[in-house]
Design a protein around this nucleic acid. Sequence first.
DNA 1: ACGATGGATAGGCATAGCCTATGGAACTTC
DNA 2: GAAGTTCCATAGGCTATGCCTATCCATCGT
Lengths: 289, 289
Amino acid sequence: MELHQLRYFCAVVETGSFSRAAEQSHVSQPSLSQQILKLEDELGARLFDRLGRSVRLTELGKTFLPRARAVLRELEAAKGDVVEGKEFIGGPITVGVIPTVSPYFLPPRLTTFTRKFSQVRLTVVEEITPVLLDRLRSGTIDVALLALPIRGREFDAFPLLTERLFAALPKKHKLNSRRSLALKDLRAEPFLLLRDGHCFRDTAVAACDRARLHPQIVFESGQFSSLLSMVGAGMGVSIVPEMAIEKKSPCRYIRIADDQAIRTIGAILLRGRSLTRAHLAFLSHLRET
Amino acid sequence: MELHQLRYFCAVVETGSFSRAAEQSHVSQPSLSQQILKLEDELGARLFDRLGRSVRLTELGKTFLPRARAVLRELEAAKGDVVEGKEFIGGPITVGVIPTVSPYFLPPRLTTFTRKFSQVRLTVVEEITPVLLDRLRSGTIDVALLALPIRGREFDAFPLLTERLFAALPKKHKLNSRRSLALKDLRAEPFLLLRDGHCFRDTAVAACDRARLHPQIVFESGQFSSLLSMVGAGMGVSIVPEMAIEKKSPCRYIRIADDQAIRTIGAILLRGRSLTRAHLAFLSHLRET
DNA sequence: ACGATGGATAGGCATAGCCTATGGAACTTC
DNA sequence: GAAGTTCCATAGGCTATGCCTATCCATCGT
């Protein structure tokens, strides 16, 4: 049983004639005739009575007609769904963010995005990088916002912004007057860093390594705001990305001059995943703002 | 968009793999792959994300899946209806009968038939022959029971029974003692006949014609019972078919010996009309009883 | 690094649906 | 009632399409 057979069948019912049905279906009358015959063969009974000039549905045909129409109706609905779904910008997006980006980068962009695309149901998940990568793989998040680079060919990366790193110093620190400093200037200082697992800890440690600096770590936390309070209390110094700088803060922030003292934030997607229009809108919104 | 594409699509969703879906669908993996590709082309978007080893539905695929399933479900329902309808003996039958057959022939057969096939909704229409033929043509009755022969190639006829004609005489008529008589024996008698339009009138008149008899008609009615009452009252004689003979009657019935003094009752159908199992059951029930 | 797995691609083949031409029955018209 | 018209069915040829095998390419696991 094929769809065109059902279409032909319905056309015959509508027009009351094989010839007119063929015309309406843009096929020759014999082709349509054949297909009706074939359909009847498969069903094992006639659908029409051929009465000289006119054709009329059999009892079987009468019961079959609404079924055939239902199939075709469902088919049209399916097609309709697709084209509608293609125009439509909306649906669910789940975005994962690392904790050291989440509170600074996302909020302003989310509000403008959801105002612009009110049909998109946006969910945010805050996790550390390896968890986000796993969730990308399993499909439980669509995009991840995290620090680049990410190794592995299974992901596509879109850099969004690059920011400098800053040293956070207590208000009365001796380096406070400097416009910038080198990491090695901090050689003598006790350090406050993020807990292990946070990628920014690795970024900071890597920068120190390059500066031949092996910091003594006196405090660890999961969030910058804790570190900065402690720094303000004079416990030591820290390294933070630009976006983590607080306006009203007990600390002074001095730019780190080292070339590689930077962090790049990017959007990561599972390679090969198809993107809805909503996904694309979200990505380009992040890139524009 | 074709049915096998939808089937393949659903198979991929169920198995989570093109290869296994191909196996399950009894086609090669490339064939199935092609068809999925083709379907995606037509829809203008991917239905699956191909992620190295595994495949996963896209958003579009997720919305398309229930639609595709609905189409296939409807299709199965249609097929189911057909086979069910073919097993089933039931549904509506409308049978037309001429008035000179209706009260004698049908009642006993109807009760046995409806007892046997309780699912059949039987409707009886009593009309004269030309009306019944018209209603066969228009499809408002399925079968007609009437006197054969019927000319015209547009009908199929199934003879059911042939009966002799009888002369109905008053109780004290001089021919009463005879076992049989010839029509010409009635030459002197006044006749009572059915009204014009009833085919049995034509049957009787034709028989008289063949016997060179031109009867004087003194009474006409639409039913035998009226004629027989009048005959009993001594108004004249009549000709009736065997089935019209009444057990308790004011008349005597004498078999008419003429060769052609017979009537054949048959079932007539519109040639080319397909018959349901219920129709066939009805016809064979008439023939058997 | 290697083989195994899974989907895509290429090329050949057979079938299925379409076409035109024609047949044959029924209805119309003169 | 004979000829023409209008139907649907049949026959035969053509093309397209779906299927096949063989192969490729990427990924994944050992």
